[in-house]
Design a protein around this nucleic acid. Sequence first.
DNA 1: TCATACATCCTGTATATACATGTTGTCAAA
DNA 2: TTTGACAACATGTATATACAGGATGTATGA
Lengths: 238, 238
Amino acid sequence: MRNKFNAIYQDLADKINHHNYPVDSYLPSETQLSELYGTSRETIRKALSELLTNGFIQKIRGKGSIVLNLQRFNFPVSGITSFKELNNSLHMNSTTEVLCLEDQHVPLEKFDYQSSSPLLATYVERLRKTNNEPIVLDHDYILKSVVPEISHKVAADSLYDYFENQLGLTISYATKKITVESPTKEEAQLLELNEHQDVVIVRSQTYLEDTTLFQFTESVHRPDKFSFVDFARRQKIN
Amino acid sequence: MRNKFNAIYQDLADKINHHNYPVDSYLPSETQLSELYGTSRETIRKALSELLTNGFIQKIRGKGSIVLNLQRFNFPVSGITSFKELNNSLHMNSTTEVLCLEDQHVPLEKFDYQSSSPLLATYVERLRKTNNEPIVLDHDYILKSVVPEISHKVAADSLYDYFENQLGLTISYATKKITVESPTKEEAQLLELNEHQDVVIVRSQTYLEDTTLFQFTESVHRPDKFSFVDFARRQKIN
DNA sequence: TCATACATCCTGTATATACATGTTGTCAAA
DNA sequence: TTTGACAACATGTATATACAGGATGTATGA
């Protein structure tokens, strides 16, 4: 928000989402936009470049930037987004139940992670429901070396809000891996699954701005409630 | 490849993959790189910006660009990449078996796609195996309005190679949706699954450079062979 | 009538410059 | 020994300019 081109990106993205710029229509040209926002064409181009990579528009040389019809209304495993943010932004009726909050070592083998020494972490187990149906069971391991203490209140509310707005940590990127596996008995029971029904597991490692690893997460999804929407651009392999 | 910054991106990406620039080390500074490649700093910055969004590096203000340890060795549902390209790049022992090749209308309801008129397409059904194990069953619908004819030879080899190198089409972007569902009897049999075992279904729509929709694909994955690896950067929701 | 040529839009690429701001090490003063 | 000021160097942001090249409509000429 502090940058010009970021502000312009947000403004354009909002206007596209609110259909001020309708699907299949062209945005104003880069020079027109630069006059509209009172800035240079390069700044506009940085904003448009963001819109391009995020699937809002397609640029066509010699013609202009056309608004795409992206239906991104599902659970975005793609980005790094907290459950609370999603809940607010989609106006869903969701709850979070904290099942466990204690110190544990990170089960490194589950995450295919190599480490010479054991990693001490705060373990948080949370069950997420929308409309009283269990959707996701989250196992979070937050490294004590970065965040020494987590209260029950914070775990019940939003970890990300606590990290970013209270502690001033800047979450930067994450690697994720999605697989389909058999649930444990506890998981099957909590998610109210039939026997022999598989679950979708999303395991992720989250890093800060300075490349410090600080969180491991294992999200266990009900298979019938799991949906993952992605936007991808063509990239050749050599 | 034709662009300077793209060539520089490729060169740096290759050097990172071959550990010429080791993980956790810093790349040369932007000014050093601009001298190395005999270009301006802005051009270098475009290349580095690509590396950043693709998870090769993390830029740290005041310090430099650090090489990340990305393990991207799994099936990238993330990008748009053909099975043959993957097979070649990972040196896997894979085969493709064409089960069906005929004209059909696209089953629009499966793809949640609205259209006033039915879409005529070439339907290709292919079974992909690696090491003689069935991995994926692909149902492709290629619109006749864009590609009138597809030979059996092309279907057995590589559709993407045919589209891009023979027909001169430029594939640009795609939307994908991943869900877990029950297989049809035919799918269960072809993928050699036990009964009551779910499959992972990736449904995608692929578009050309000029935003023309030209392909629907439904990939049915064996759940135990399915793995999806992703890299994501933090982006706040408003 | 039809095709060619041109002007005029558009985006794509490349370079140069300036200043802002974060990181680090040095060196002198307290 | 510690602190603080500062220089050197890193990336981040913003602007300006130039030319290349695709898309499109118009005017000219055969």
